[in-house]
């Protein structure tokens, strides 16, 4: 019975993941391989960034709130791209919130604990999902309609040039594990339902949920990747790497906010405030 329950949990989380995240890894890989009728528009310098404004805006008619379009109306390149990053973060946080609610048991937790789990988990989950949109040369943007090269991002002035490079480095190691969307669904759920976030009231309730997810993940990986014996411990190590990545990211965002003339979305402000 327990085995059947864990399989059901894996299936439920996979379904919730496909329902709430618009760009699955499977879809992203098709875009990245250029196997779509309209390949992504490549942004590799200031000119192509300007052109992206027109091209992607045409694709996005009726979607006035799209971050890329509004951000491209800003004057300075770095500020524009920083706003694009923020827009993607905010969009992913809303998707992650809906996904979290679909994790069995999550919605019954104390509301303040739900907030704490999201506050500390969403960026770790975001960088995990972002890896699906990255290859060694760049990053898919605007729902797969655009592709920004890693070199262009690296060529921006500091500190903006430091924003995405660590995420590329993480993504290259993480993508080498060759997880699919069904594995990622369990991994992202394990990130969110984590019993050792600061300030949780009902730790045992969260640990109970977390244990089922981790157990389901272990069984699922055995079935889905029978030849990769050490995949499960390798993934657990990635949880620690993600925590370090987010700590550094939060520091960098605070530095950008302090030293650059740029604003931070209110949702991101509340997440970063008193985080670490």
């Amino acid at each position: 019975t327990q085995l059947a329950d864990l399989k059901t949990l894996a299936r439920q989380l996979h379904e919730a993941y496909l329902r709430h995240f618009h760009l699955s890894k499977a879809k992203a890989r098709i875009f990245l391989a250029g196997k779509t009728s309209t390949p992504p528009f490549v942004i590799h310098d200031l000119d192509t960034l300007q052109q992206a404004q027109q091209i992607l805006a045409t694709h996005m008619q009726g979607d006035e709130k799209d971050g890329l379009v509004s951000a491209l109306q800003e004057r300075e390149t770095e500020s524009r791209l920083f706003r694009c990053c923020q827009h993607t973060s905010v969009e992913t946080v809303t998707q992650l919130t809906e996904f979290a609610k679909a994790v069995p048991g999550f919605a019954n937790l104390d509301l303040n604990d739900q907030v704490t789990l999201l506050k500390y988990g969403v960026h770790e989950a975001f960088f995990t999902l972002l890896a699906s949109c990255m290859n060694k040369d760049g990053l898919l943007v605007a729902h797969g309609k655009g592709f920004i090269t890693r070199e262009f991002l690296k060529s921006l002035r500091r500190p903006f040039s430091d924003l995405l490079e660590p995420k590329f480095q993480f993504a290259m190691c993480f993508n080498a594990l060759q997880l699919d969307d069904s594995d990622l669904a369990l991994f992202v759920a394990a990130i969110i339902c984590c019993g050792d976030r600061p300030g949780l009231a009902n730790v045992s309730h969260i640990e109970f949920i977390q244990e089922s997810i981790i157990h389901a993940l272990q069984l699922h990986l055995q079935a889905n990747h029978p030849d990769n014996t050490f995949l499960f411990p390798k993934l657990l190590q990635k949880l620690a790497d993600l925590r370090q990545l987010v700590t550094e990211h939060a520091q960098l965002v605070q530095d950008i906010k302090k030293t650059q003339d740029t604003s931070l979305h209110p949702l991101l402000q509340e997440i970063y405030k008193d985080m670490y």
Binding site: K65, H265, E270, D274
Partner: peptide, 20 residues
Amino acid sequence: KEKHKILHRLLQNSTSPVDL
């Protein structure tokens, strides 16, 4: 609770759009 107004709102409403 006041510190995390938007997260509370997102958790309590379904798919509430967050304007940038």
